[in-house]
Design a protein around this nucleic acid. Structure first.
Length: 315
DNA sequence: ATACTAAGTCTGGGAGTTTG
DNA sequence: CAAACTCCCAGACTTAGTAT
């Protein structure tokens, strides 16, 4: 790239061994404030292209490069509220609503607590003063509660007894960490989230079908299942708030266009538990078309590499 | 039993499009 | 023309499932 005249970073160095890498990391950290641009760490890469190729990629990342970040800026704030969100698979996720604080360039007012094991481990309570940071300089994270600053009469956060959205009972299977709503598509949160997942770019790619539109379609009872998307009428859409001819036509066209998709994307879009992009691709590869896949029995599915008994059963 | 990978969930800011 | 909305980007963390 350099020979071709591209500007490249000055601070690159060939290093051998762990300690040389660590020294480089330290060197750049010292220099950080004097750089004419912002950085959040350094990247170690395997130098030889042949080895890079050999190592290749896994779904989300190259196996020949590793980011080594600088410590994140930490701030204190107050947990005003702990809410429970319901995901598309019914997973109940506790989320801290925070008194907004400015950290690493943005105002943070929400942070996930992941699950109840996590929450109990850290013992985060409403009213607590907490330390937060942006993990990887991106995702807000509650590091810990500051016990000395805990007001009197706070209460340990309690496990919800029923789904906060649909009231169905919740289950937490032995050995699993995630608490789940059993409502299925009866639960409007699960319905909404499954439709949003169906529409995303890497699934059916329905352009313009975002958060708010899905909420609207579900609230107006126009959609009870993803298949209902394909029965929407122009007049129904135009009757909705913030919908005019242009937006109605755009949405209908996007829905229509989504029919022209590929098998792996369709499988992924269905949102079957444990069937993400990789597994969907693998299945499409194995079966070639949908009718063949649908005729497969448990035994056949389990024989496929990387498909175990659990995934087979979900399928 | 351990290693590895995939899945699933989460957040804020800015650009671009459409409505009212 | 402001407000509302989508889309895209940045990526962490934890759990769960399969292979070895």
């Amino acid at each position: 790239m350099q020979h071709w005249g591209f500007p490249i970073a000055d601070d690159i160095q060939l290093a051998s061994g762990v300690s040389a890498c660590e020294q480089f990391h330290e060197k750049i950290l010292k220099k950080r404030d004097r750089l004419p641009f912002e950085i959040d760490g350094v990247v170690y890469k395997v130098n030889a292209f042949a080895l890079q190729e050999k190592l290749g990629f896994v779904s989300r990342a190259p196996r020949f490069a590793l980011a080594y970040k600088f410590p994140a800026e930490e701030k204190e704030t107050v947990v005003e509220h702990i809410e429970f969100q319901v995901g598309r698979t019914g997973a109940i996720t506790p989320v801290a609503r925070l008194k907004p604080v400015f950290v690493s360039g943005v105002t943070v007012s929400n942070a996930t607590l992941h699950n109840f094991d996590e929450l109990f481990r850290k013992d985060i309570r409403e009213g607590d003063t907490v330390v937060i940071r942006r993990a990887g300089d991106v995702i807000p994270e509650v590091v810990k509660a500051i016990i000395e600053k805990r007001p009197k009469n706070t209460r340990k956060t309690a496990l919800p007894k029923q789904c906060p959205v649909c009231g169905s009972h919740l289950v937490k299977p032995e050995g699993e960490a995630v608490l789940r709503c059993t409502g299925g598509l009866y639960c409007s949160a699960q319905l909404r989230e499954s439709i949003k997942h169906f529409a995303t770019r890497r699934a059916m790619d329905i352009d313009g079908l975002g958060d708010k539109i899905v909420d609207l379609l579900v609230d107006e009872k126009l959609v009870h299942h993803v298949s209902d998307l394909y029965r929407l009428k122009r007049a129904q859409l135009i009757a909705l708030p913030r919908f005019a001819e242009k937006s109605a036509d755009n949405l209908l066209e996007a829905i229509h266009n989504s029919k022209k998709t590929t098998l792996p994307r369709f499988l992924y879009a269905l949102g079957i538990r444990e069937v993400g992009e990789s597994t969907a691709a693998l299945l499409a590869n194995e079966f070639g078309d949908l009718p063949l896949l649908m005729r497969a029995d448990l035994e056949r599915l389990e024989k496929i590499r990387d498909v175990g008994p659990v995934v087979a059963k979900h399928l």
